Amino acid sequence: MIGLDTNVLVRYFAQDDIAQSKRATALMESLSAEKPGYVSQVALVEVVWVLGRCYGVDRGQMKDIIDSMITTKELVVEGADTVRKALRVFVTSAKADFADCLIERSGHAAECECTVTFDATASKVAGMRLLK
């Protein structure tokens, strides 16, 4: 298994740099169930941020991208079940930030009583508890 950095994943999905996208695609196509690529939750959060902010990828497209990463046998996504649950919250709320959704769902998976925040929006849409 080899780890995949955000920039490799972005080049693969965005296909925006001829040389780097070609190398990223070749690498991604070389992965297999026996030798998969590993996507950390940190890299996944960055991918969502970059694709959304820099490339205008909408929530529906983001869901498709993340779902494809989770379901392909050529990739191992850290905490895939938690990511899947965070993704559900993210796509059902127009204001939810994916990172906030993942932070809250990660806390839940770790059996935290709650996840506290000073972010009022995160407390409303991502299920966190506002710290007053």
Rank of each mutant, 00 (worst) to 15 (best):
R53E: 15
A126W: 05
T82E: 11
W49C: 09
V77M: 07
C114N: 01
K73Y: 09
T82N: 06
L131P: 00
L75G: 02
D64T: 14
Y55A: 10
I70A: 07
D100L: 12
R105D: 02
R53N: 12
I65V: 12
V10I: 12
E78L: 12
D67R: 03
S32M: 14
Y12K: 00
M1P: 00
F13N: 01
R11K: 02
V39C: 13
D97Y: 09
L102W: 08
T71S: 10
T25K: 10
K22H: 05
T82W: 09
G107T: 04
G79R: 03
T92W: 07
E78F: 13
F13P: 00
E78P: 00
I103E: 06
T121L: 13
C54L: 14
S68H: 05
S32D: 14
F118G: 02
I2C: 05
I103A: 06
C114I: 02
R53W: 07
Y12L: 10
L102Y: 12
E78T: 08
W49F: 15
S40L: 14
A96H: 01
R23H: 05
E78Y: 11
T117Q: 04
V39M: 13
E46F: 13
R23G: 00
R59Q: 10
R11S: 04
I18M: 08
D100F: 12
D97T: 06
T25S: 14
C114E: 09
D5V: 04
Q20I: 10
D5Q: 03
A86H: 02
T121H: 01
M1L: 10
A110N: 05
G107V: 11
T25A: 15
G60W: 05
Q61N: 11
L87Q: 04
Q61E: 15
R84K: 04
R84L: 11
L131W: 14
V91D: 05
F118H: 04
A120M: 04
L44P: 00
E29Q: 14
S32F: 15
R23W: 07
H108E: 13
V42Y: 13
R11H: 07
V125T: 07
A99R: 00
K124A: 13
T117W: 08
E34W: 12
F90Y: 14
Q61P: 00
G127C: 11
Q15T: 02
S93A: 08
A126I: 04
D58G: 11
C54D: 15
R88A: 09
C112N: 02
A33L: 14
Y12D: 08
S21L: 13
Y38T: 03
V91C: 08
E74K: 04
A110E: 11
C101Y: 02
K124C: 05
A109T: 03
D16W: 07
D17R: 03
L4R: 00
C112K: 01
Y55L: 12
R59E: 09
A80S: 12
E111T: 03
G79E: 15
A80N: 02
L44C: 08
S106C: 09
Q61K: 08
S123Y: 06
